[in-house]
Write a protein that binds this DNA or RNA. Structure first.
Lengths: 244, 244
DNA sequence: GGGGAGAGATGCCGC
DNA sequence: GCGGCATTTCTCCCC
């Protein structure tokens, strides 16, 4: 447990030095900006990063309960029985007030990290997999390009079938839902209109599809092709074997 | 700076006590599950919550760079020059390996928080505002219900205009985009089909709309009604005055 | 648990 | 900056 005096002093010093700041405290929080939120007293963990991002975490759950984006200004003022942290981001008109009653611990340090994460197994990887293995979609499918840009959105994969019909493919790495069908339909109708062709096929390529989405596909004469998600599953199997 | 021995001991003890754990370290991270990711060596801050949620934060940015959801198991094993933290969630088949080279600080404490956040200014508030002030949509609009459930999705607001035409309203609290128009169109066509009526109006109610979305609305004979976002803006103005 | 949709969504890319 | 869209989206609600 820190005194509020010690906390105030350390906080101001760390902020000036551009440190990453971490502390746990008992506090009350009010937010106003895109929406408005209120959170009564409880224990939370607060991070302020070197880019002045602020995150407030409750003791459970994945997401921060409150947050402020980078380039936020943080002002600490000590009162009788509490410390007020006022975080403001005027450029996006957002305000966060944290009334801090007790500080359980405080730490700060200049952290350095120049690495960027590498991710495989995204929808883009799935589209590339289809480009390399076009027969997944249908016999003699000839893909033309990927990420075709139209005024009504970007098409994942685009090509011709063996009868020279245009085919629009929308990939989903997990479940195909109503939203995915709507999206596919939008692209198909845009292509029909812009090219003046009546016969354009639309294919939803995903591992599985919800019943309502399948019904909607059929209502609009679109097609479902079962495509397994990208091959990160093989790697998962490998890692699982390694772990067992 | 902690020795890896001290860190290992404290970590295991804190985990057993169900504490919230916070530490900063130099580490390397590999993830395998829904996708796969790799992150080379750098400084990160790691939280493990009492529900066994794990979050990894880089020194900048809003979102965790890696994470594991609640009920994940965390196993620490000490090697020669590093400590390996293996986090597994078998029920969702997700695996995270963190190779920890240096520990800058470690802290743990049992945190207590029973409060739930209260938020105002959501799309639901906007729908309720329209229900109470139906003339926003059109003259003599008579709303029937909110959140009408159809097989093709849930309709925000639903009612009749002065000529007894059915009106489907979709609210967006910020910008109306292609997705919103697709969504509205899906509902309108579903209602037409299920009720066997040709004349159903579709209204997109939002503060602003993108040019392409407006074009698409017109293409499908749908309507745009400018509706201001919920009145949290008044509160923001109040707070802004307070702060100035 | 699945389906559907919002979120103070965020982040990325492209124009 | 906006627009369009994926996200290891997450979270909530309802069936």
């Amino acid at each position: 447990m820190l005194t509020l005096e010690n906390f105030t002093e350390q906080f101001k010093d760390s902020l000036k030095k551009n440190h990453s700041i971490i502390f746990s405290c008992e506090c009350e929080i009010n937010y106003s900006g895109r929406a408005e939120s209120h959170l009564l007293i409880g224990d939370r963990t607060i991070l302020i990063k070197s880019d002045k991002t602020l995150l407030v975490h409750q003791p459970t759950g994945n997401n921060p309960i409150n947050y402020m984006e980078e380039h936020t200004s943080h002002l600490l003022t000590k009162d009788e029985d509490f410390v007020m942290l006022q975080s403001q981001n005027l450029s996006v008109k957002e305000f966060l007030d944290i009334s801090i009653k007790k500080v359980y611990f405080f730490h700060s340090k200049l952290l350095k990290d120049n690495e960027k994460i590498q991710i495989v197994g995204t929808e883009r990887d799935m589209a590339e997999h289809i480009m390399s293995n076009p027969s997944i979609i249908c016999e003699d499918f000839k893909p033309l390009s990927k990420e075709e840009h139209t005024k009504y959105g970007f098409i994942d994969v685009f090509g011709y079938d063996k009868n020279n019909n245009l085919v629009v493919v929308e990939c989903k790495r997990y479940n195909g839902d109503l939203k995915a069908v709507s999206q596919l339909r939008r692209y198909v109708e845009k292509i029909k209109k812009s090219r003046g062709i009546e016969q354009v096929r639309g294919v939803l390529a995903c591992p599985k599809i919800s019943p309502n989405a399948l019904k909607m596909l059929e209502d609009w004469s679109l097609e479902f092709v079962r495509v397994n998600p990208p091959n990160y599953l093989e790697k998962f199997d490998k890692q699982q074997q390694k772990l067992l």
